[in-house]
Simulated scan of single mutants.
Amino acid sequence: MIEWAPDRPRWKQVADIVRKRIADGTYAPGTRVPSVIQLQAEFGIAAATGQKVHRALRDEGAIYTEPGMGSFVSKPEKPA
């Protein structure tokens, strides 16, 4: 069970957990990340909260979405 920090929005806390899982290899580059529905089930959050998580991770480039396929971990950018 997650102990929610009362001073931070839940979507930010869930996004941090997903980021950590990406960083530690739980979600490897190119693999699917949990859908909004899966985030709802795992964390007990609303669909809108799960959508915010996905949007934030997409906006920062951590994940990308393939329409009709799902969301996947972005491959790390190679240094120039």
Rank of each mutant, 00 (worst) to 15 (best):
M1G: 11
M1S: 13
I2S: 07
I2H: 09
W4M: 06
A5D: 15
A5N: 15
P6W: 10
P6E: 15
P6T: 14
D7S: 13
R8V: 13
R8F: 08
R8C: 02
R8L: 14
R8K: 14
R8P: 03
R10E: 05
R10S: 08
K12W: 05
K12H: 07
Q13F: 03
Q13A: 09
Q13R: 06
Q13H: 07
Q13P: 10
Q13K: 08
V14S: 05
A15P: 12
A15I: 10
A15M: 12
A15Y: 07
A15D: 07
I17S: 08
I17T: 13
I17H: 09
V18N: 06
R19M: 12
K20V: 01
K20Y: 06
K20Q: 09
R21N: 13
A23P: 00
D24L: 11
G25K: 11
T26A: 06
T26Y: 10
Y27N: 02
Y27Q: 00
Y27C: 04
Y27W: 11
Y27V: 07
A28D: 00
A28G: 00
P29K: 07
G30Y: 11
G30Q: 08
T31M: 04
T31E: 08
T31P: 00
T31Q: 08
R32S: 10
R32P: 03
V33T: 10
V33R: 06
S35D: 12
S35C: 05
V36D: 14
V36Q: 13
I37D: 11
I37Q: 05
Q38Y: 00
Q38E: 15
Q38R: 05
Q38L: 06
Q40I: 02
Q40N: 00
A41R: 12
A41C: 02
A41E: 08
E42I: 05
F43Y: 14
F43E: 05
F43M: 04
G44D: 07
I45K: 03
I45R: 01
A46D: 06
A46Y: 09
A46L: 10
A46W: 06
A47C: 00
A47W: 05
A48Q: 13
A48S: 15
T49I: 12
T49V: 13
T49C: 14
G50E: 08
G50W: 07
G50F: 07
G50R: 01
G50P: 03
Q51G: 13
Q51K: 13
Q51N: 13
K52H: 14
K52L: 14
K52S: 15
K52N: 05
V53S: 04
V53P: 04
H54D: 13
R55K: 15
R55H: 11
A56H: 12
L57D: 01
R58A: 02
R58I: 02
R58N: 03
D59L: 05
D59A: 14
E60S: 14
E60P: 01
G61Y: 09
G61L: 09
A62G: 01
A62L: 04
I63Q: 11
I63M: 09
Y64W: 15
T65F: 01
T65R: 12
T65C: 02
M69R: 15
M69H: 12
S71R: 05
S71E: 04
F72V: 11
F72N: 14
F72T: 11
E77T: 08
K78E: 12
K78D: 03
K78R: 14
P79I: 14
P79D: 09
P79K: 05
P79W: 04
A80L: 14
A80M: 06
